[in-house]
Amino acid sequence: MNTENLVAPWVVQSFCAMIFFIGLSGVLVRRNILVILMCVELMLNAVNLSFVAYAHQLQDMGGQMAVFFIIVVAAAESAVGLGLLIAMFRTLKTVDTDEIRLLKE
């Protein structure tokens, strides 16, 4: 396998970093909780990509393996997240983060 036409590792890593911070800023900026959940997923997948990139770079299967765990956990997480969202929607009738300001100070 010739390796010369492959992408340089730092490119992939910086790409992952970009996606990660897009996801993070999504969580900060967006009002709608559904979008926030999606952004969290985005962050997790960015990490997956960086894992795979490192695994390839280090020629070690550990990274690849980690991705599976992360995907499983991300699934569980979003399940719980959506469950909570529905419960909240049933009482607060909204998914907007500005509405849920009951607990403060």
Binding site: Q13, I33, L37, V40, M43, A46, Q57, I70, M88
Partner: peptide, 28 residues
Amino acid sequence: SNEAAMKYFILGAAASAILLYGTALLYG
């Protein structure tokens, strides 16, 4: 209670993601 759970979830998830990304970099 719902609001508390939601807040805890979102921020917890974000923090776990940060932790994970740290792990990735360390692994890298």
